[in-house]
Design a binder for these strands. Structure first.
Lengths: 207, 207
DNA sequence: AATTAATAAGAACAACTGTTCATATAACCA
DNA sequence: TGGTTATATGAACAGTTGTTCTTATTAATT
């Protein structure tokens, strides 16, 4: 396989560029990250970068495209999903665990930082955030709460409102974690808040 | 008063610079806002700016220093505060109204955007956010919830957790409003969510 | 081993950055 | 009115920016 070895080499430096760019973007943002800084972090010259990416923007897009792909993607399997929702608190705990895992994952952390910095300056990133994060999770949660209401597990209320109330603390927690980590502070006290959130919330809705 | 007229003139252009800088910073961030762009928005040359501010950073600081000064500052009056907390839901509604007002205030909106863009890149801004916004509000809310518990108005639970659960949706709502406004989208559907949050939350904790 | 393709380097480009300077203009106070 | 001070100008500075060349080097294919 001659082609494979070739593309592997390319992929290798391409990945090195992505890693370097991700690190710099998470710290200095798009404007603060120069093509030369990325190149020097990889160990090549700025002109050599253009053999792998057509643009600075192309590097940026190759990274931001990965922000909203990971979480809860397999939840779309309807059958399993309905069965899970019937489990009530256990379902919420599973949701929490996935969110918590992402919140403390090193790679996801960098992507989150990049998102936060660019969110107010990049229109397509905003669109992705609203559709791929917010609306997707609200949809998932509200229909889950709807099922729980039908099953008589939780009190009757607007599932949409309930979903927002359940989701918001996760996001706020994640932001706090990123802020503390940016200053090298300890995030351990925040670690238990994920479980506390689910406990408090379940007490708030359980029948 | 000769000095007054003089300083008023200076203050005049100083304010024009601040207004221009605030607008640009809210849209393009610190790195994306050049001294020349600020000057041209005011109608002067870049060199003239340095008669009013020593630095680009000085302009930035004069704006960011105003971010965390406004909200809930009068809540520190202990006597009034204790009486207010005893009112239960009414207190939460008052808190909500203040937050909602800020969320839809045009000036506060710009400051919020600047904060969001620079939060991950500016250490002192992070510190202010955690201390002046997060900790201050958590302190205020948790001691309020504590009083409500003593008064038998709400169920017994960790006041700290309760405060976080009450605060997070406000922040998340505010972020959503900023994102929608950045794209020129309508924020009216989010307007009623403030009240819905208080209603839902009160149902979750009231005895 | 010879040829072709992929990747690297280095120099150069025009545009832009924050800041400073000498100088001109305007506003103020005596 | 004359002198002082505050504010504006325009040019210049040394860096940095993204990008594009031409040329060299390395690897893959024949």
């Amino acid at each position: 396989m001659p082609d494979t070895t070739n593309s592997k080499r390319v992929k290798h430096t391409r990945e090195l560029i992505q890693d370097a760019a991700m690190e710099l973007l998470a710290e200095y943002g798009y404007k603060g990250t120069s093509v030369r800084k990325i190149a020097s972090k990889v160990g090549i010259r700025e002109s050599a970068l253009y053999n792998h990416y057509t643009n600075k923007e192309a590097i940026f897009l190759s990274i931001t495209s990965k922000i909203f792909t990971t979480p809860f993607s397999h939840e779309n399997d309807q059958k399993i999903f309905y069965e899970n929702a019937k489990k009530g608190k256990r379902f919420l705990q599973r949701f929490m665990t996935e969110f918590k895992l992402l919140s403390f994952d090193k790679n996801s952390e960098k992507l989150f930082r990049i998102m936060m910095i660019e969110l107010m300056q990049n229109s397509s990133l905003r669109e992705s955030f609203i559709k791929e994060f917010h609306e997707k999770n609200i949809k998932l949660l509200s229909s889950s709460f709807f099922i729980m209401m039908q099953e008589g597990l939780i009190r009757s209320s607007d599932p949409m409102v309930m979903a927002n109330e359940f989701l918001a603390p996760f996001f706020y927690l994640r932001l706090q974690i990123s802020l503390l980590k940016a200053d090298g502070a300890s995030t351990t006290p925040l670690s238990t808040q994920f479980e506390k959130h689910v406990d408090f919330f379940w007490e708030s809705i359980a029948l």
